[in-house]
Nucleic acid binder design. Structure first.
Length: 294
DNA sequence: CACCAGGGTACCT
DNA sequence: AGGTACCATGGT
């Protein structure tokens, strides 16, 4: 990391918690280093560190616009937080991790990642995605660290690009299962084939209304409302999308409906009307709060 | 060892 | 419409 060929860039951002953002179960291949985080943005290796007034980025060849887009450093977080309903659970959640942001990820990587996420813990999702990239991705240039000197075993298979839909469509189901994704393997294959065959155009979803984009995603086998909402929120930026996983369901039951048992339909209407235009942001704060408290 | 994990599907009353 | 078994695998 003391390489002179590295370029440095400061992305100004007030109120940005890099660690909370990169470890909050949105993206699955960031690695903590001594000073910050290492990962891949738009197919390029980057190293990120938290500074007093923003995020410092180091890369071999910097693309400032791509970094700012992915990290969403230019969004006014305080303005978003002001749209939240003023209630005790959200106050506690925001207090627990002020500066938590939503990322703006690549749709294909995000879709495959969350297809693999069902009833998996975040550490296991990270391992699945790592195996997928290590076996089917392409190598990405990274500056040689001092610790790489001989054979630390890590330098050669990391980082690698996230495998394209074309590449994954060419992989057998058993090869996918070998990445420990189990019964999700045929789902990943089907998504890769749908994208490769042009039956699903991920770029064309950008212009659609949120509900229409969700309909297109849910047509894929293995993709239901929860996974679709994750992709809508973490890749496309539909900030009203509200994924309900077991943690968020626990938050809704314990914090908002303590002694009633609302029907699924009632709950859905509640989250759609109560949390406002940035409901997805509120969801991420509740998720992080439930997962990290004691 | 039970129990659970950023779910979805098929099948059952 | 509302429950339930099942899917595969590893953490706690």
């Amino acid at each position: 990391m003391s390489q002179s060929s590295l370029q440095t860039l400061l992305l100004p951002a007030r109120n940005y918690d890099l660690t909370a953002t990169l470890s909050s179960g949105q993206a699955f291949r960031w690695r903590q280093t001594g000073t910050g985080w290492e990962g891949v943005i738009a197919g390029r290796w980057v190293h990120l560190t938290q500074t007093g007034d923003g995020i410092a980025a180091h890369a071999i060849e910097l693309r400032p616009a791509e970094l700012a887009e992915y990290l969403q450093t230019n969004v006014d977080l305080d303005a978003i937080l002001r749209t939240f309903p003023d209630d005790a659970p959200l106050r506690a959640s925001v207090e627990a991790c002020r500066g938590l942001r939503l990322l703006r990820q690549d749709p294909w990587e995000c879709l495959v990642s969350f297809i693999c996420s069902s009833t998996k813990q975040i550490v296991q999702i990270q391992q699945i995605i790592h195996l997928l990239c290590a076996r089917f991705g392409e190598s990405i240039p990274r500056p040689k660290a001092e610790s790489d000197a001989s054979s630390d075993g890590l330098a050669n298979d990391w980082p690698r690009s996230f495998p394209s839909a074309e590449r994954l469509a060419s992989v057998s189901e058993s090869e996918l299962r070998a990445c420990k994704m189990g019964f999700r393997a045929p789902y990943v294959r089907a998504a890769a084939q749908a994208v490769t065959a042009g039956k699903l155009n991920l770029e064309s979803l950008r212009g659609l209304a949120c509900d229409e984009a969700r309909e297109a995603l849910v047509r894929l086998p293995g993709v239901g409302p929860k996974i679709a909402n994750c992709v809508l929120l973490f890749a496309y930026g539909y900030q009203a999308a509200f994924p309900v996983d077991v943690w968020v369901m626990k938050a809704l039951r314990e914090l908002y409906f303590p002694r009633r048992r609302p029907t699924a339909d009632r709950l859905q209407r509640f989250v759609r009307t109560y949390f406002g235009p940035n409901a997805g942001y509120a969801q991420q704060y509740l998720f992080h709060y439930m997962r990290t408290r004691s």
